[in-house]
Write a protein that binds this DNA or RNA. Sequence first.
DNA 1: GGCTCTTTCGTTTTT
DNA 2: CGAAAGAGCC
Length: 836
Amino acid sequence: MTAHPHDAPGTDSLDDLFGDAPAPRPALGAAEAQNGLLKGLNPEQLAAVTLGQEPALILAGAGSGKTRVLTTRIAWLLRQGHVGPGGLMAVTFTNKAAKEMSTRLSAMLPYNVRGMWIGTFHGLCNRFLRAHWKLAGLPQGFQILDASDTVSAVKRVIKAMNLDEERFVPKQVSWFIAGAKEDGLRPKDIDLRDEQTRKLAEIYQAYEDQCKREGVVDFAELMLRAYELMRDNAAVREHYQHRFQYLLVDEFQDTNKLQYAWLKMFAPPGRGQGVFAVGDDDQSIYAFRGARVGNMSDFEREYRVRRVVKLEQNYRSYGHILDAANELISRNSHRLGKNLRTEMGPGEPVRVNEAASDFNEAQWLLEEAQALHRQGLPRSEIAILYRSNAQSRVIESALFNAGVPYRVYGGLRFFERAEVKHALAYLRLIENANDDTSFLRVVNFPARGIGARTLEQLQDAARQSGRSLYQSVAAVPGKGGSNLAAFVNLIESMRNLTQGLTLREIIEQMLETSGLAEFYRTDKDGAERLENLDELINAAEAFVTQEGFGKDAVALPVDELGGFTPGQIAAGDPPAIAAVNLTPDAETGEIVSPLAAFLTHASLEAGDNQAQAGQDAIQLMTVHSAKGLEFDAVFITGLEEGLFPHENSLSDGDGLEEERRLMYVAITRARQRLYLSFSQTRMLHGQTRYNVKSRFLDELPEASLKWLTPRNQGFGSGFAREYQQAWERGSGLKSMVGAGRVERQAPAWQQEREGKDAPSFGGAPVPKTMKQAAAAKVGAEHGGLRVGKAVFHNKFGEGVLLTLEGSGPDARAQVNFGRHGTKWLALSVAKLTPID
DNA sequence: GGCTCTTTCGTTTTT
DNA sequence: CGAAAGAGCC
């Protein structure tokens, strides 16, 4: 057993942690605290904020002031002296939420909140593991793999094991491994129910060995390692359980099994800590990723929660919008039960629009958004939401062609860009040359004559000796070997040249020595990449300033930090604080170089996907990424069966309920104005699909809706029919096929709104093959039935005819019945009535 | 070793 | 349809 302190310090010495804070614990009178902090809270918020040291579940509806409650509670606890800043932990999911909390707290407290345990699950686990790297069995400077690093690491394992990549798809295998870890399972714990799983467990084991050899951990590993150390080391466990008297968890509905287990290690039920779990079961949209809404009810039961506080007062949206949200979500079962209310009045009705095609829908979005902007709404207050990323394309092209600034969220993020990853790989090799992932990324970039054959030899050698690629270079003979040796020399000289430099200088030096800068300077489209590399330097500079790695950084007294002495933490002597820019971590006293700290930062925080920042632009994003945001005007697009709710989610009831929650999240993003739109036809995977409007539209209260297009116009009656007729006549077909789309006169209702000459565009359902064309022709022979036509079936209801095949008694039709799915029907038996 | 042709695949994804 | 990754060619 390692010598480990469990004489956890009292709250007093923890307060000393904040040596730079003027008054660690001001004794405020209740009245003053009331005025300063609690003013303006509604009764439920106040109740939540001022709860005692007990387990509590806060059901925080959308727009109910959740973040305010969380931060105010922290400030209140500190100012009341219920706990010191070191005795409290607040966990979130996103860096953004953590940052937001810290910023707001700084404004409420007289301390520097840096050093407090406020952060993401992964960020806090990282901090914990950096402090206890030795006990956790990690190398001191362990690096963190992001999602794509993880996949390529897994891929290497699969290759090394000589397994078929068709059968073991790297991405899926890495999913399997992450899933196992998130269930708290190591390879030996995997249930080997079949041959495939047995093999997967083997890959998992080999992957683990590889990570260990390279000194890297993936995201899931951060959580699992931290959990295991708490579970297996009584001294550590005792210390932290004693230390953290109050724990606050944000977005509790999104926690997975491991995160909940992790939390229970820090604050087991019955130990009397104040665990404050905030969440909204109706906004649980990450079950597909392992989130367990059930953790909320488990928490309530296991912690014998007596106080469930519901925050139902909504400060964001007008009445019609909330009515729509409430009515929709009421259709879900197993809810914890919550109804949003507002005092803002009914506001405007929810507008509903039906379009003939996805192209048309985009055109309508563009015009409506422009109208809003002309009325004085900033573009950044207009959000266009969609279920899946592929839907953004048509919308983007409409906006782009009209010259309207827009910003798409969810693309490549800063630290994920290829050139930035290359630069980071060099930096990582300076820190840890055994990081094979980074080695392979840049060993031949820029090109230095090291090809696949050479690398194969190198990897064989490394595998045989159980060493890293870097260490195995000498084993490769010939020209490849000498090129490899040159690369090693390059890295070594880089390490020497950057000794004692500031972070900025290190990066600049690396860019030149590695040849990266030169490569992009001569590359024909390297200009943008060079800019990003400059941006990397800026990011590093900002990081240095923010995290206090500046030249004036002063070493804090380490022996009082969190009750661990440096010697005890590391079970060895920490490096001396010699060079400028070497600052011990405020919490652990561990000496970190700014470079190492920056690399960790880069792994844990992928950065924004910066589009033209600063420009007032319309916001485009998936519904998932809209969670937590709000806008004056929101468009929810593509409300069609199969798209939203998505067809892949329809196989089970839980899937549908998650889709409904997703719709609920989408609706509750809107403050003043909400638009819902759907289209009769849509281009997907290069094929035109005829869709039925989403069932979610039928689940909204009629009284809150205003149809911009005639209600229930009937599918297949608009554009699709017109095109079909034109095609059958053979008129105008050539131009339609040539352009891939058709121009036509707008339907009557649209002319009424937009003027007589309004043109209308639609994606044409161009038959792709002769076979399809023939089938469509056959279809024309069946009394009144045509592809694209709306039909009615006694059992399945309204649907859209997709295909007609055969003739006479063999004639059959494929019909999309929306919620009943797509069916093949024999026309001699099934009775299909065309609807007009 | 780098370029071009071909094949494959397409829901959402906070870290 | 269109991106991205892999295979194959010079």
